[in-house]
Write a protein that binds this DNA or RNA. Structure first.
Length: 269
DNA sequence: CGGAGGACCTGAGAGC
DNA sequence: TGCTCTCAGGTCCTCC
């Protein structure tokens, strides 16, 4: 499911229900996720939530003694239930919140994770991540420097978390289209002005999607159960064979490393 | 080292 | 209807 805008949408959705409340306990129905659910989570009792943050595609829930580190994988979502409701087949973890509401994690494919971290600096899941795309550190100059000599295709290169986090399969294709850069080029062929443009475009596309509540393709829902509306603004993703909104030529798709890339051969050079 | 590919897991939809 | 195949928003691991 989710790329950065969907995680940020989820974070904003759950934050007001958690901060200044306590997590009474966690109910873990299925501990076998991407990694086993951490024992510290299973043992949680009556902990006040200090903050709800995000790093890359991880949700970070701050407790007095450490952090709940959640990842939604490909198909995961979190939502707030007004009260405890019977769990479905894929409702793997509930966090019971003081006052009676429930933070429920649902994930059919179980590629997600719920881990405990004593502190964020030493958390192995977070340690090797590149810069946040919406931070000042992520710039055209940064992209240009990193691209030097790279033979990888630009599109899978953008999806590498060591380069920049949060850009997944949807937004990699969308950003390259908006920047009019062909995904078929090697990363090392980026010019300075293209790198500047690409960095700005990635920020703009992600920001706009966050404002729309993310992209709902099939199962992603915001924490209140509503879909995200950015799907209506997708220019190339999922539009193989349909006319390009800019030039009318047909959108093409190709597989690069197991993932489909969508692009307009005429607009993107 | 960089880069390619398989692995994890389930469900939806297409085609026969 | 039901089987088989392909595809899906992520990322870690191994192999060359």
């Amino acid at each position: 499911m989710p790329e950065l805008p969907e995680i940020e949408t989820s974070r904003r959705g759950i934050e007001p229900y958690l901060v200044n409340h306590k997590i009474i306990k966690a109910i873990v129905r299925q501990p076998k996720l991407r990694w086993p659910v951490s024992p510290q989570i299973i043992a949680l009792e009556n902990q006040p939530v200090l903050s709800v943050q995000r790093r890359a595609k991880y949700l970070l829930i701050e407790l007095p003694d450490g952090w709940l580190v959640g990842h939604l994988g490909m198909s995961g979502s979190v939502r707030i239930l007004p009260e405890f409701l019977e769990a479905g087949k894929h409702d793997h973890v509930d966090f019971l919140i003081s006052g009676g509401k429930v933070l429920r994690y649902t994930d059919p494919r179980r590629f997600g994770a719920w881990l405990w971290a004593d502190d964020l600096e030493t958390c192995s899941a977070l340690k090797h991540l590149g810069p946040e795309p919406l931070s000042d550190e992520f710039s055209g100059a940064y992209l240009l420097k990193k691209s030097q000599g790279k033979k990888t295709l630009i599109k899978p290169w953008l999806m590498d978390n060591k380069l920049v986090v949060g850009v997944g399969n949807i937004y990699a294709s969308e950003s390259l289209f908006e920047a009019r850069i062909s995904p078929l080029r090697a990363a090392g062929t980026l010019t300075g002005s293209e790198a500047d443009n690409l960095a700005l475009t990635i920020k703009r596309v992600l920001q706009r999607s966050i404002e729309q509540g993310g992209t709902t393709l099939r199962d992603f829902l915001q924490a209140d159960g509503k879909p995200g509306y950015f799907a209506q603004e997708l220019q190339v993703y999922g539009r193989t064979g349909e006319p390009c909104h800019a030039c009318g030529e047909l959108i093409e798709s190709e597989k690069h490393g197991q993932r489909t890339t969508f692009f307009c051969r005429h607009c993107q050079r």
